[in-house]
Write a protein that binds this DNA or RNA. Structure first.
Length: 741
DNA sequence: CATCCTCCCTTTTAGACAGCATGTC
DNA sequence: CTAAAAGGGAGGATG
């Protein structure tokens, strides 16, 4: 189908597509149009990665907007929201407006309501529905990207429930669900009353194969020699081979440590092939990486990048990840070893993909469990860069002939699994039942069951009664904890229940926080509050390592009076969780005691990304706790607020006032404080020479800070830094001054 | 005597959404 | 129901 034949789309679109080099639609795109994508028909597109899914969404969205509607594009990751926004911004030249809404980045609320296309994460959409964002009712087209994630036990139910709510709220809503190739796309189509486009077509050929011995065995039956030298690992040989061919390699491994070790080794095999130009550019990327964070992880990454390799996992700060992704896309990095973060994340295609480890540790399975076919296919799908490579190649590695056969049977010749709704699980229903009642989608048990009947779970289940059973259990839980009131058959959310739903808290987290704050007899300490929020189900747990049990049991005894609520006995099952929450709490306390990032990441064996994640979550939960305390009229709200401010800025109590000034963070606040400037009032009246000295002679910074604190004459012209204060706290943070000793 | 290599035993293990109100070094 | 790699330490070989 030629782009000129499109009907229903805005007039400018065919020309725009031609400008972008699109003349003919890909077969799955044409199928989608024939199924009515541009006429407002709902659609499930189950197609491989990189086969033009985004264009299907764009056709549907622009057509819908042209009819006067509004489109919403739901993504599973914040990083993807940014990527999609950039893509859709191409439409702004035709007068369309694009907005983004995620937890950490929001377009202006009022402006969002006027946008034609809005990009948001599924949780954010859920939250917007709960909080009654007015534009939700005006939607005409909703795109759900990576909809196969409804299979995910944690986050799948949110997407599922949100889609059901949007459809109930907007009769006639067009739903475009984009999925990876899965075993049962027809059930998704049945659920969404949608047409199905099920295709395995790819614009670039993908050749899958298994490497064994000295050869690659491809799925078409061909073999190709690929020599592995003595003392060399298969992965190294493949990377070398790809590089000789002018391509780069993406290697998937099963742990962070393996990713880092592989990057170190593989950087060694590519570093001699770099041009001087590449070396220079890589050195500047490495410098940016070191700038992001002063930790061992950051340093290891930078030194690998200098040699043309990198690793990628969730322990990296998001800036780290972006730098690696960018340098890999620019073909500067010749090899990246990654955990599954990269398979599901932003678009990072590669000439060749190696799935080195096909088993991964799983606590539930009690050992190494094989990756799902879907997951391996997603990794393989990263092979082949559109427009750059003639084809992509994805290789698994076998160490024995038996394994060679097994890998072919398991992954190459096998279709991906069917997806299955995970809605009938307690945590999911506990949260979504409350939200459904609180935001007015149901007001009785029957109403709830009727609503739940609109979900994928209901479409899919053959096991009648299970959903109803769990629903009743969770209604009891919500009633006992005072989130819901039952009057005969009627259900209403209490005011506490409304607050919890709007704060986007798991009701169990809210119950834990409320209980902890209510039973506190004295003003809770920061550690006590950090521990309280760390043991809620909304905080991801730190792993207890050998030796940690004893260490934190001792800490629990030493600081027992600070810890809120009932301490479980060491023989209870939840003791482990309670201890690991204590470990998290002490990490947060270290952060809020101005310990350096590098010392913390070292002490707890975490990456900078983990630390920032924990701090972020704690900040969110403490602000929710503050609201709950206010709601219930509890007296400890100020203590909660103080803990929140401390963890948000990473400061001790005495810096709270100073850190409230824009442009002053944990480092500057500490230096000002050491120079005798302890409050904002001090700062307003301070000797400029002292301020300038404390801020290391940075005139521009000093002027900004003084301006922000409301000083009328912030100019630093003619002021000389007071040298006596400039030395304070120096050495660790400013490398340029190290040499003076 | 220092350094390197090898072998064996122990340790460890993926990912990441949300509120609210504005900005680190 | 299930594993594998890295890192550290001991002990031996090498220079």
């Amino acid at each position: 189908m030629n782009v000129t034949e499109l009907s229903g789309v805005p007039d400018w679109l065919p020309d725009h597509l031609r400008d972008e080099g699109v003349e003919e639609l890909y077969p799955p795109q044409a199928e989608a149009v024939e199924a009515g994508a541009t006429e407002g028909e709902s659609l499930v597109a189950s197609v491989p990665t990189a086969s033009g899914k985004t264009l299907i969404a764009e056709l549907a969205m622009t057509a819908s907007v042209a009819r006067g509607g509004t489109a919403l594009y739901i993504v599973p990751l914040r990083a993807l929201a940014g990527e999609k926004r950039t893509e859709f911004e191409a439409f702004e030249q035709y007068g369309l407006t694009v907005g983004v809404s995620t937890g950490n980045y929001d377009s202006d609320g009022e402006w969002l309501a006027t946008c034609d296309i809005i990009v948001a994460t599924s949780e954010k959409v859920d939250s917007l529905v709960r909080n009654g964002a007015p534009w939700i009712d005006d939607l005409s087209c909703v795109v759900a990207d990576e909809v196969h994630l409804v299979d995910d036990g944690n986050r799948g139910p949110t997407l599922e429930v949100t889609l059901a709510k949007l459809r109930q709220r907007n009769p006639g809503l067009q739903v475009v669900a984009l999925s990876a190739t899965i075993g049962n796309p027809e059930i998704l189509a049945e659920w969404l009353d949608a047409e199905l486009v099920d295709s395995t077509w790819r614009p670039i050929d993908l050749k899958k194969g298994v490497h064994y011995g000295q050869a690659v065995h491809l799925e078409d039956g061909n073999q190709r020699e690929l020599q592995v030298r003595d003392g060399e690992k298969a992965t190294e040989a493949i990377v070398r081979d790809t590089l000789n061919d002018g391509g780069s390699t993406l290697v998937f491994v099963n742990s962070r440590r393996n990713a880092e070790a592989a990057a170190r080794r593989l950087a060694g095999t590519v570093e001699n092939e770099l041009t001087n130009e590449e070396r220079t550019q890589l050195a500047s990327v490495a410098a940016e990486i070191r700038d992001v964070s002063d930790t061992e992880t950051s340093e290891d990454l930078a030194s690998a990048v200098e040699r043309g390799g990198a690793f990628h996992h969730a322990g990296l700060a998001s800036e780290h990840r972006e730098l690696v992704e960018g340098a890999f896309r620019d073909r500067l990095l010749k090899v990246v070893s990654a955990t599954p973060t990269l398979a599901a994340g932003v678009n990072t295609p590669s000439r060749r993909v190696v799935v080195r480890d096909w088993r991964r540790y799983s606590g539930e399975a009690g050992g190494m469990a094989p990756l799902s076919v879907l997951e391996v296919h997603q990794m393989c799908g990263r092979a082949g860069r559109p427009g750059l490579d003639p084809y992509g190649e994805a290789l698994l590695l076998a160490k024995s002939h038996d394994e060679l056969d097994e890998l072919f049977d398991r992954y190459i010749w096998t279709d991906p699994e069917a997806v299955r709704s995970k809605l009938a699980a307690e945590p999911a229903l506990r949260t979504h039942l409350l939200a459904t009642v609180a935001s007015g989608f149901a007001s009785s048990r029957e109403g709830l069951l009727e609503f739940l009947d609109q979900t994928l779970y209901a479409t899919q289940t053959t096991e009648g009664g299970r959903l109803e059973r769990v629903t009743d259990d969770m209604l009891d839980y919500l009633e006992v904890n005072d989130f819901l009131e039952r009057d005969g058959d009627d259900l209403t959310a209490t005011s506490l229940g409304h607050t919890v739903s709007r704060l986007y808290l798991d009701p169990m987290s809210a119950a834990e926080i409320v209980d902890g704050l209510q039973t506190a007899e004295d003003r809770p300490s920061a550690l006590g509050l950090f521990h309280l929020v760390s043991r809620t189900p909304d905080m991801y747990e730190l792993y207890l390592r050998s030796g940690d049990r004893e260490e934190y049991t001792m800490l629990a005894n030493e600081r027992e009076t600070e810890l809120l609520g009932m301490k479980p006995s060491e023989f209870e099952a939840r003791w482990e969780d309670w201890l690991s929450a204590l470990k998290t709490a002490r990490l947060l306390e270290d952060w809020a005691s101005e310990l350096d990032e590098s010392e913390i990441t070292d002490r707890y064996s975490v990456g900078p990304g983990d630390l920032r994640g924990k701090v972020d979550t704690a900040e969110w939960l403490l602000s929710a706790a503050e609201r709950l305390a206010g709601e219930l009229g509890l007296e400890w709200a100020p203590a909660v607020r103080e803990a929140r401010t401390r963890v948000a800025n990473g400061i001790r109590t005495e810096l709270i006032d100073l850190a409230g000034v824009r442009g002053v963070g944990r480092k500057r606040a500490r230096r000002l404080y050491e120079a005798g400037i302890e409050t904002r009032t001090d700062l307003r009246n301070a000797d400029k020479a002292v301020v300038l000295g404390a801020l290391r002679g940075r005139r521009k910074t000093a002027e900004n800070v003084l301006d922000n604190v409301g000083r009328t004459d912030p100019s630093m012209a003619d002021v000389e830094a007071d040298g006596s204060v400039a030395v304070v706290g120096e050495g660790e943070n400013d490398q340029s001054n190290l040499g003076e000793f």
